[in-house]
Design a protein around this nucleic acid. Structure first.
Lengths: 217, 217
DNA sequence: TAGATTGTTAATCGATTAACAATC
DNA sequence: TAGATTGTTAATCGATTAACAATC
């Protein structure tokens, strides 16, 4: 592989996808990097730099074909196919994520969920099969699932991750407040909601004493 | 202000807090940067560098007092007091966040929630008052709330943010798939769940063709 | 051709890692 | 005193921004 691709670039590709969907809805055939950048409130340089990691998608002096760039980015992100996920921990958050529309729109479907609480399990819930946690290995053996979404308490999260890994699942979206993104066998993305809120309280507290200006990013 | 503090540093302070809570539970009075770093799977350099932005908290040759460092970080993050938040959009995700324990443990309490759906509103729900969206200004005038948590559809998110700002709320945790973190009057943190999943599908797709090794971070 | 806009190289900026002097 | 560990400076690494040649 030629140049290392920044993680931030990958995350921004999703934004570009959204912008293109918007411009397509607006019946635009072609857009410039400037127009996309304005829509997303970023700089056009960044968009072009990000795309340059993957190839040449535009025409100099013209811009980008919305439809073509959309397809190209979908392909880069692997979103030109369907993916299936399992939610582990069917509490408030697990349930909310199971029915999150944003995932389905991208072709990512929650197929099954697991929970320790026997009262929740062994039934279908809006098309999703809910199983007891101890049946995880058994169920995942027959269901084709590539992604695990972990919303269990932090005490068991690491164990769950390694069990998922044992079932052949190589990607985890983790909501437990600890780092799962450290192994070499699993790709994990940690989403730590408490950290995000502390980030806000830090700035609320700090904004006071300094001045109304604020270091957003 | 002397040196600019990286955003990543602020986010890591929350992790340090958790590590210290762990070591306190383990009855440790003093910990070294190495021990904390091992627990969190980061490098001790990073911990020490991060802390150095805020002062001197350890004793050379000894380490850090768990209790003292805990208090110091709480103060830095503004977590030595209570904060109150309003959830806007009481759908699946809004409801899940309203009862998320991790927030309460940090002294951040959801006081009220708003939704357009009249069937959900004008009642209490496990201690949280649910109000119709059009009463937002009225309710927020009498309730002391510093943080807005936005889980409305993307079409209305920007409008909601500016209405929150108009009510004196200066910090927003945004789950709508667009950027609210651009104004100078509001501190926003955007949490984009679809991006996180695409990040995983990208790596799943890419890991195949390269090799089992993976560029975690 | 002139104007517009891309793709890429170079310059800048910022964050992480490493090394080490200070000191408990 | 010797060993341990912090806090800070310096070196490295990586990402963003800017500038511009290529070209539609």
């Amino acid at each position: 592989m030629a140049k290392k691709i920044p993680e931030e670039t990958i995350l921004r590709l999703s934004h570009y996808l959204r912008a293109l969907l918007y411009f397509l809805e607006e019946k635009k055939d072609v857009v410039s990097s400037r127009a996309i950048a304005e829509f997303l409130k970023i700089s056009p340089h960044q968009l072009r730099k990000d795309l340059s990691y993957f190839g040449h998608f535009g025409k100099k002096g013209v811009g980008y074909s919305c439809a073509q760039l959309l397809e190209a980015i979908k392909e880069i992100l692997g979103l030109n196919r369907n993916w299936y996920a399992a939610v582990v921990g069917f509490g408030n958050l697990g349930r909310a994520l199971s029915f999150y529309k944003g995932f389905r729109d991208q072709g990512i479907f929650i197929k099954v969920a697991f929970d320790v609480d026997e009262k929740k399990t062994n039934r279908m819930y809006k098309g999703i099969g809910i199983y007891p946690l101890e049946k995880m290995e058994e169920v995942l053996k027959r269901e084709k699932v590539q992604i695990g979404i972990v919303t269990v308490p932090k005490e068991v999260a690491e164990d769950i991750a390694s069990r998922l890994s044992g079932c052949g699942i190589r990607a985890i979206l983790n909501f437990a407040p600890l780092k799962l993104n450290f192994s070499h066998t699993i790709i994990a993305k940690d989403v730590d909601l408490s950290c995000q809120l502390s980030y806000l309280t830090y700035h609320l507290k700090t904004a006071h004493r300094d001045s109304p200006k604020q270091s957003s990013k």
